[in-house]
Design a protein around this nucleic acid. Structure first.
Length: 288
DNA sequence: GGCCAGGACTATG
DNA sequence: CATAGTCATGGC
């Protein structure tokens, strides 16, 4: 059992809220405790990760062939443990009372994302246009068709696995032709060494977006969602329909704002736009 | 039953 | 550059 000291502020229960409220827990699952469990295929090794709250630190259990040091680093990133949430609160207290109020309501919540850039990008493409519930069923299909398993828990398939299936395999499972092509083509590009997402993500933010949108199936929204999941603190998918609805609701607008309006209203969130979007999405989970 | 979903591509003015 | 049509399907 490994331990990761809690950042401040932090609440695993709050952070798990969004995972638990999803219509399906395809890869990352929450079990009683609470315990976050996910199988992981990383660098050709398969294993399982369990994360639970200890008295003074997060307890991380790593099983299988996974390298402990690498896996702990992945957990840090996927659980956003290095984000300065205290600075986010201070900034919003001074700049935006609405956002400050949301941040207080979900005190200690940090986004729990994917464990690889490939999974983040595939997930964003899968999530384009369709409702979240259907997106999860599409993700489940991909996992069922190609994913490996550890101890009964499915892992998100490595790109090599997805690269090997024909478009028709996904088309037959309710993917649109284009969505099937986008996901499989990107898996093939990664597998064949033509695409290195890590090098794109490492670029300055605007350059990263510019490079990512050159990929077929990747527009600005998808690029910003990937960068957000990769930990870019100021990623801001302002055109997101959920963000637009959340802004209308929490800022009391009489109409659904356009992407430009959201970007303007959210200018004060910089350099914490990604966390602001996360808290807006969190707010949407509470109906009414 | 019609419209909207955590968009992007393609074809036309 | 700007707008319209298309995509697949589930949820409401």
């Amino acid at each position: 059992m490994h331990q990761i000291a809690y950042p401040q502020p932090y609440s695993l229960e709050m952070s798990l809220k969004r995972v638990q409220d999803m219509p399906r827990q395809v890869i990352g699952r929450v079990e009683p405790g609470p315990v976050y469990v996910r199988a992981l295929e990383h660098a050709g090794r398969l294993g399982l990760v369990r994360v639970r709250p200890g008295p003074d630190a997060l307890d991380v259990e790593i099983r299988g062939e996974l390298d402990p040091a690498e896996t702990l680093a992945l957990v840090r990133r996927a659980f956003a443990l290095d984000l300065d949430l205290a600075a986010f609160h201070a900034h919003m207290d001074a700049a935006d009372p609405v956002m400050a109020s949301l941040a207080r309501k979900y005190q200690g919540a940090r986004p729990i994302g994917t464990f690889s850039l490939w999974e983040a990008l595939a997930w964003s493409i899968i999530g384009q246009q369709v409702n979240v519930s259907f997106a999860y069923s599409l993700k489940e299909t991909l996992v069922r068709l190609c994913g490996a398993q550890f101890d009964g828990y499915p892992a998100f398939p490595a790109p090599e696995r997805v690269a090997g299936i024909p478009y028709e395999a996904l088309q037959a499972e309710k993917y649109s032709r284009k969505k099937a092509e986008y996901v499989i083509d990107i898996a093939r590009a990664i597998t064949e060494g033509r695409l290195d997402l890590a090098s794109h993500v490492a670029l300055p933010f605007d350059d990263a977006v510019t490079q990512l949108v050159k990929l077929r199936g990747v527009g600005r929204w998808t690029a910003e969602c990937l960068l957000m999941d990769a930990g870019a603190p100021d990623a801001f998918p302002a055109g997101d329909i959920g963000i637009r609805n959340a802004v209308q609701r929490f800022y009391g607008l009489d109409h659904q704002p356009t992407e430009a309006e959201v970007r303007e209203l959210g200018r004060v969130w910089a350099p914490f736009s990604a966390l602001a979007c996360y808290y807006l999405w969190l707010g949407l989970l509470d109906k009414g």
